[in-house]
């Protein structure tokens, strides 16, 4: 089959398998939990990468991140459902569904207006959550202990290992699917729409529909990422899930990672998470300084992101479709 011939898929499979095995047998718990958080964010970044390749940047994807997180948390709180095989698909569906509805409006906008309208929608959700006392207002509330196949985990350490393996499997699957998508005709429409909308219309394809599809996909992936994040942190609240700074963080990691590969978001997110840990140890008040400085450096000196260094080191050209 041609999937076996695809070097990227082989690379992703080996990479994720290696990370999973290393994690289970070698890594200390703190690194496991950081990787879980990093990969949860990476799922959202993967969604933003699809948009970025289309020339679109959203300053409001915390909307979908928050929707995913709150869906998981509320299913536990109100329906007693903690089965991840239900809660995570539900998070994906809710975010994708809202993305589908808002997409009818959003697909008409480009550039700064696209960014701003997304921001406005995300801040509407933020405004609602902050004032909703039954959901804990600004404090949020805690997430039920998750179960898999109806089985809970007895210790925190076991929970961590299960989550870790879970996110490796889901991350691998998402990366492979997005990679396949980007290689498809629909995926090639990203470059096409970014470069020349008129030509796309005159080739017989609706630009609005192409953008709408990509938007729903990015919303769903971001929702899935938010769902995982809620489980990993065991807690949801508006400030850390829905505020505009969360959207900014997602965009930051997207730029840090670079658009070159579907593996980039996972590497970029991991660097981001490790950087955060060490930075806060060395310079407690300097975290935003480092993030902001890095963002400026990348914009001015490394527009291809971290991935461009990796691909250069591996001696290949950027894998544009």
């Amino acid at each position: 089959m041609d999937m076996i011939k695809d070097k990227t898929i082989v690379g992703l499979t080996i990479g994720f398998a290696a990370v999973a095995i290393l994690g289970v047998f070698v890594m200390p718990d703190w690194l496991l939990s950081q990787t879980v958080i990093a990969f949860a964010r990476a799922l959202a970044v993967l969604g933003l990468l699809v948009l970025w390749r289309t020339g679109l940047v959203s300053f409001g994807h915390a909307l979908y991140f928050g929707l995913g997180a709150y869906t998981v948390a509320m299913l536990g709180r109100y329906f007693g459902i903690s089965e991840v095989l239900i809660t995570l698909p539900a998070a994906t569906l809710v975010a994708g569904g809202i993305g589908f509805v808002l997409g009818f409006v959003i697909r008409r906008y480009r550039e700064i207006f696209f960014a701003m309208l997304n921001l406005a929608f995300s801040m509407v959700l933020f405004g609602i959550l902050v004032k909703t006392e039954s959901l804990g207002s600004t404090d949020g509330f805690s997430v039920e202990q998750p179960t898999l196949f109806g089985i809970g985990t007895d210790t925190a350490s076991n929970k961590l290992v299960v989550m870790y393996v879970g996110i490796c499997v889901v991350g691998w699957l998402a990366a492979v699917l997005v990679h396949r998508y980007l290689q498809s005709v629909l995926g090639s429409l990203s470059t096409a729409v970014r470069d020349n909308e008129i030509r796309v219309e005159y080739l017989g394809y609706s630009v609005a529909e192409a953008i709408h599809g990509k938007y729903v996909m990015s919303a769903a992936l971001t929702g899935l990422g938010g769902g995982f994040m809620a489980i990993a942190l065991g807690q949801v609240d508006p400030e850390s899930m829905v505020n505009w700074t969360v959207s900014g963080e997602l965009v930051f990691v997207t730029i840090l990672s670079g658009p070159g590969s579907v593996a980039a978001p996972f590497i970029g997110s991991l660097i981001f998470e490790l950087l955060r840990t060490y930075a806060t140890e060395i310079l407690p008040q300097g975290w935003q300084l480092i993030v902001g400085g890095t963002l400026l450096l990348i914009i001015f000196f490394l527009p291809g992101g971290v991935w461009s260094i990796i691909s250069k080191a591996m001696g290949r050209k950027e894998a544009e479709p």
Partner: peptide, 20 residues
């Protein structure tokens, strides 16, 4: 009206892909 960041070959490939 071409896809300015893609190669000539890829321009035609994308166009053919969409047309098909």
């Amino acid at each position: 009206q071409v896809f300015s960041t893609a190669t000539v070959f890829d321009n035609l490939m994308i166009a053919l892909g969409i047309a098909e």
